[in-house]
Amino acid sequence: MSHSNEHAEHAAGHDHGEAHQHVVPLSLLSGILVLLLILTGLTVFTARELHFGEWNLVIAMIIACAKGTLVVLYFMHMRWEKMFNAIALITALIFVTLFISVSALDSFQYEDNINNYRAANPTRVPQAIISDAEVRAPELAAETGADHEAAPSTPAAPAKESHESGDGAAAPHAG
């Protein structure tokens, strides 16, 4: 794409003591828009029509990143910006990645622990509704259909190492 005419426009700005700004040619902007629309179509198509399982997410994310890059570079003028602004953006992205990956890393480590508990204590949802009730007054309990008296329990249930059975110690109650 040609940049010749915007250089002229740019120079015109300079005469008036204008801040150092870059004027993006219209043809470039329209071209980017068309590309973005095509990529949007592509992302819908791959997700709906092609089945690569886990890879669908990867493909969708690659396309989204490509679209994002186009927006940042051209619509947001990053190509012509000061280095600091790019650093600000990249730092933000790095820290988001750091935050997500470390939290996810830890979460995956202890997920089994949670699944074991859920397998052994399947009645946790009513429990939640009752705990709402504790905070949000009885009318909420009525509204959500929680029923305190319905709580079955064997509080002295023996500790089973495997916790395979559902009638374990954690019966619903409001704690």
Binding site: G17, V96, F99
Partner: peptide, 22 residues
Amino acid sequence: TPDQQNTSAKMGMWAFLGTEIL
């Protein structure tokens, strides 16, 4: 200078956009 003003403003905006992303 106008350049100083514009640079500051853009810098502030990009820093702010960084916070939005986070």
